[in-house]
Design a protein around this nucleic acid. Structure first.
Length: 249
DNA sequence: AAACAGCGCAACCGCAGAAGG
DNA sequence: ACCTTCTGCGGTTGCGCTGTT
């Protein structure tokens, strides 16, 4: 089916958002939520299309978004998850609290991509396998429990004390009120137990760990790792679609 | 100091799937 | 069952900033 262009109507503004527009959008969502993005800009008095409003909100205005540079651990996490998941940015973002798919995508294309290919040595493969195992174990434990970072669960909340974000990331203050998902930003990946990350990414003791899934234990020759990953379609489907969050482990 | 090139990031576009009538 | 509308996702673009010459 062919959809009409989002902003087919003349007169709708495009391009960078102004501070005033941000304020209007935040205030409106605070009061009414966003049950319908299509009509939201009309009701809020914005000369934007609903798509543009949604993008602005989800990528920059939501209160639980963490701004600023990616930590080394986050970059490693992205690289590992990308090796497993490919370009499923939303799935990767679901495992990086406070980060958006757009932001992760940008980071990947700007600098991580350059490093990733050259860094896939044997040690990286061990780390990768361990990340996968953590996902699988988490998947087992999490059945029925919604990820605290599930963006859907936050959509109906009221954000009463949102700091007015700045259009520029350079000047954005990441200090935001408690998120609607009870996600405490003080527990960001940056602050996670160092032992956890060193363990995950060093891969030194990987061989001592139990295998979480029958396919995970198979290490192909060379870098043909991905071929085994497709042996169990249901397994990967579940992993990709359930939004399990690694940091909860 | 000016011109140019490269990079980073915000935003747009189009498609696919979900949801509702 | 089919059609329409809406949302979400991934790819891509374009502009501004920064570094280099």
């Amino acid at each position: 089916m062919v959809r009409a262009p989002c902003c087919e109507k003349m007169g709708l503004k495009k391009g960078p958002w102004t501070h005033d527009e941000d304020t209007i959008l935040i205030n409106y969502i605070n009061l009414h939520g966003h049950p319908n993005w299509r009509v939201l800009p009309k009701l809020a008095g914005l000369l934007r299309c609903g798509k543009s409003c949604r993008l602005r909100w989800t990528n920059y205005l939501k209160p639980d978004i963490k701004r600023g540079n990616f930590s080394r651990e986050e970059e490693e996490m992205i690289k590992q998850l990308h090796t497993v998941m490919g370009n499923r940015w939303s799935a990767i973002a679901a495992r990086l609290p406070g980060r958006t798919d757009n932001e992760i995508k940008n980071v990947w294309h700007t600098h991580l991509k350059k490093r990733a290919n050259s860094n896939l040595n044997s040690k990286s493969l061990k780390s990768l396998k361990k990340v996968e195992q953590l996902i699988v174990e988490d998947d087992k434990e999490e059945s029925g429990r919604l990820s605290p970072f599930d963006t859907n669960s936050s959509s109906q909340e009221s954000y009463s004390e949102i700091d007015s974000p700045q259009p520029s990331s350079a000047s954005y203050n990441s200090s935001t009120p408690t998120s609607p998902n009870n996600y405490d930003e003080t527990l960001s990946i940056d602050d996670m137990d160092d032992e956890f990350w060193s363990e995950v990414f060093s891969g030194e003791d990987f061989d001592e760990l139990p295998v979480g899934h029958e396919n995970i234990g198979q290490l192909p020759s060379g870098c043909g790792y991905e071929s085994n990953l497709h042996d169990d379609v249901d397994f990967w489907f579940n992993m990709f679609t359930r939004g399990v969050d690694l940091s909860q482990i």
